[in-house]
């Protein structure tokens, strides 16, 4: 049995999103019935916000930025030229065309490498944002739109975000076999632009889905699974499970504490997956779904026939 002081310590960890998932559930159970903790949380949150508002709006001087960029260009060129010099020394005149091609490959490789880091950094930012918003919803459960109608939620977001918002599946949450229920959504910020956070409720779990334009971030890294032409990237972060994927100009990040691939069944999210699939999909998709189930697709428990596999269709 934890003392009240223990919970007091947990409050700041909770605000900082550093409370382990196991303790989090325990804390939330206590929190619901504890007026003192509720008051402390509100005050601690307000204090953090006050401090955060004092963040100096510092901008690096333009001259410094220019120097750094020049440095990058020089480093880039130097890498290419050094490699070129080595290649030229090593090959004869007859091989000069080949050396030129090699040089171009090296220069292009350097450029791709920088671009890769940039994309990877954005992909990680997107995941962090999805996790942060998922956790934030544990504290502030208010929604900008509350509806269990996918059409209503889609239409609401479509008018408020700068990208063509689509739910992962037009039939999402309306499937009788889904154990989750669409609750609604709210607007959040990602990369300085509006993104959509869609929230689903399961009996003992909550699922959130962050949706943004793939111009801001693309799905990368993690354990990759291919299904119905989509590539799913799955990873675990502090007992949360995240699946990201791109589809038709949008990037999705699904966050949940539902285990992925532990039992090899779709029953976590669906009462009867086979029937559910058969009802909503083409025969070839049903075969593919069953095959994936037999291969213990790591994502199937979270995104069987509704959230992920048919994304954007």
């Amino acid at each position: 049995m934890k003392s009240h002081e223990d919970y007091d310590t947990m409050i700041q960890l909770f605000i900082d999103e550093e409370l382990p998932e196991g303790n989090r559930e325990e804390f939330l159970t206590h929190f619901k019935d504890c007026g003192d903790c509720q008051k402390t949380l509100v005050e601690a949150e307000a204090f953090s916000e006050t401090v955060q508002r004092a963040r100096p709006q510092v901008q690096a001087p333009a001259a410094l930025r220019a120097r750094v960029l020049n440095q990058m260009d020089r480093a880039h060129n130097k890498a290419g030229l050094t490699a070129l010099a080595q290649i030229q020394a090593a090959v004869s005149l007859y091989w000069r065309p080949l050396s030129m091609a090699a040089m171009l490959c090296i220069v292009a490789g350097g450029g791709l490498s920088i671009s890769h880091f940039r994309r990877e950094s954005l992909a990680n930012d997107f995941i962090r944002s999805a996790v942060a918003n998922h956790r934030k919803f544990g504290i502030d459960t208010s929604l900008d739109i509350s509806s269990s109608s996918p059409q209503e939620v889609s239409s609401w977001f479509a008018q408020r975000v700068s990208f063509p918002f689509r739910m992962p599946n037009a039939g999402i949450a309306s499937d009788d076999h889904a154990k989750y229920k669409l609750m609604g959504g709210r607007l959040v910020d990602f990369g300085g632009q509006r993104a959509a956070l869609v929230v689903f409720q399961m009996p003992n779990n909550r699922i959130s889905l962050l949706v943004s334009s793939d111009k801001l971030a693309k799905a990368m890294g993690g354990k990759i699974t291919q299904s119905s032409g989509l590539r799913f990237h799955a990873r675990d972060m502090n007992e949360l499970h995240i699946a990201t994927w791109d589809n038709k100009g949008l990037t999705y990040a699904l966050v949940s504490s539902v285990a992925m691939g532990s039992s090899g069944s779709c029953s976590t999210c669906h009462r009867s997956s086979a029937t559910g699939v058969a009802k909503n999909k083409k025969p070839q998709d049903v075969v593919e779904h069953v095959l994936q189930a037999s291969e213990k697709n790591p994502l199937q428990e979270m995104i069987p026939n509704s959230v992920g596999v048919s994304a954007g269709r």
């Binding site: 510092v58 410094l64 930025r65 960029l69 940039r118 950094s121």
Partner: peptide
């Protein structure tokens, strides 16, 4: 093309 440069998005935070 330059804003694609590696880590440049952190320059303000690093300067701060």
């Amino acid at each position: 093309s330059k804003t694609e440069a590696f880590g440049l998005e952190y320059i303000d935070a690093l300067y701060g």
